[in-house]
Each structure stands twice: as structure tokens, then as C-alpha cells.
Nucleic acid binder design. Structure first.
Length: 229
DNA sequence: GCGACAG
DNA sequence: ATCTTGTCGC
């Protein structure tokens, strides 16, 4: 997937070959992690993109879908779908090397860059602090956050009410939050990807999830990928 | 050695 | 991710 870099919506760094082995992939994560910025969030977030990949049959056929939502109305204003084949196995910690290439190809098809990427997975809540959301944020230079359905770190259950949260920890770091988006449902796991703050990320997720556990960005992207043939 | 391990 | 029944709630 060497071409992934020159297909980005916005390219910011020197291209390098896509890895074919796990040690190579880990080295790339270690190298890129220093570029992540978590000190500021966008002043205004008008549009938010949801990204999801759906897998087909037993093969490595996949469908990558991106939906862009108007944050105020939560209506879908743009979509992109791409089909392809997985070029990297699923390895916990190396998720981005499997899903980023088709997602970048889908992002390229959007008519305009969204204000934030809401990724289906982790950002800094990652063994090397460089999950999918960080990776996509760095490659596109678009602010990004990660919203995972399961945790990679340790956490105490947050309060039962919507908006309650507790720190998500890995080793000795606070890497994200377990955030309750609806009363009586399992929390989601929010972490920063790039050019965002944890506080603003949780704020955005709550705005995107007024009714269901998962943000509308994730839900619409998931539905779009799933309804493709 | 054993369990854990985003999607 | 996916395999899967019934069940609860809107």
C-alpha cells in the first residue's frame, strides 16, 4: 500500500513504504507518534466524518465507508464507499495497517475535508499510544478522535447517567475515558487521535450520540458499509 | 506457561 | 469482525 500516502485528502509528511511485517509496522508507529498533537481542538466543528470497515465472507474482501454529518442537525451531507481486499492481517495493536488504506481511499472521494474524523477504534488508548485514530489524523492532518466499543485499558465503571465518565488507563497513563452516552448502556471508550483534546472529544461524542450508545457518525458509516454488495 | 488482545 | 434466540423498549 505504498500509494496510500499520495492518495490522502491532505498529505503532511514524507511518504514511506507501507509495512509488510509486524516489526516494521511497530517501528512506524513509534516514529509517527511524536507528531501527535493533543493540546488544542478545532474552534468550530461543523462537520464530522464517521469511518467504518465491513468484512465479507471468509476472505479478506472489505467495504470501507465514510459518512460526513452536519453536527448541528446530524444529517448526512456526504458519503463515500470503497471496496477492496485487506492487505494486512488483523493484529491487535496494528489495526491501522489493515483498515487505514481503504479508509484513506474512501476519504479521498469526499467532496470536501470534514472538520474531524470519528474513528471506529482507539486513538491514544493503544499499547504504543498510536491507534487508528492517531494514524489517520497524522496521515490526513485532519483532527481526529477514536471511539471504541471495547476498552484496551483499565477503567472503573462511570456513573449511570448520560455524560458520566471515568479515566481509561494503560500502564501509568490516562489514555482516554470510558464515557456513558446513554443511561443503562455500556460506556464507549473515547481517546484523542490528533489535533484534539480529550475534553473536547468527549463533548463531541455526546453531541453525536443523543439517542444511541454509539455516535451517529459510526452508526451511519456502519449502515452504509453494510448495505453495499 | 497462561491469559489478554481496538475491528 | 462474525456466529446467533429471544426479549425488552420505543
Amino acid at each position: 500500500m505504498a500509494g496510500a500516502y499520495d492518495r490522502c485528502v491532505i498529505r503532511i509528511r514524507e511518504p514511506h513504504p507501507w509495512p509488510s511485517t509486524e516489526p516494521e509496522a511497530e517501528a512506524i508507529q513509534e516514529q509517527l507518534r511524536s507528531l501527535v498533537r493533543t493540546d488544542t481542538a478545532p474552534a468550530e466543528v461543523r462537520t464530522a466524518a464517521g469511518l467504518d470497515v465491513d468484512y465479507r465472507e471468509e476472505s479478506d474482501e472489505l467495504v470501507a465507508a465514510v459518512t460526513v454529518l452536519d453536527v448541528a442537525s446530524l444529517s448526512v451531507v456526504d458519503t463515500a464507499v470503497v471496496t477492496g481486499k485487506a492487505e494486512f492481517p488483523y493484529v491487535p495493536g496494528l489495526f491501522a495497517f489493515r483498515e487505514a488504506p481503504p479508509l484513506l481511499r474512501a476519504l479521498e472521494k469526499l467532496s470536501a475535508a470534514p472538520d474531524v474524523l470519528v474513528c471506529d477504534g482507539q486513538g491514544l488508548a493503544h499499547p504504543r499510544r498510536f491507534g487508528l485514530a492517531c494514524h489517520l489524523g497524522i496521515l490526513t492532518d485532519i483532527p481526529s478522535i477514536g471511539v471504541g466499543k471495547t476498552a484496551m485499558g483499565r477503567y472503573e465503571p462511570p456513573g449511570e447517567e448520560r455524560g458520566a465518565w471515568s479515566p481509561l488507563r494503560m500502564d501509568d497513563d490516562i489514555v482516554g475515558r470510558a464515557l456513558r452516552t446513554q443511561r443503562g448502556v455500556k460506556p464507549v471508550f473515547v481517546s484523542v487521535g490528533h489535533r484534539y483534546t480529550l475534553e473536547a472529544a468527549c463533548d463531541l461524542v455526546l453531541r453525536l450520540a443523543p439517542r444511541y450508545r454509539l455516535p451517529e457518525t459510526t452508526r451511519t458509516a456502519d449502515h452504509l458499509a453494510r448495505r453495499q454488495t
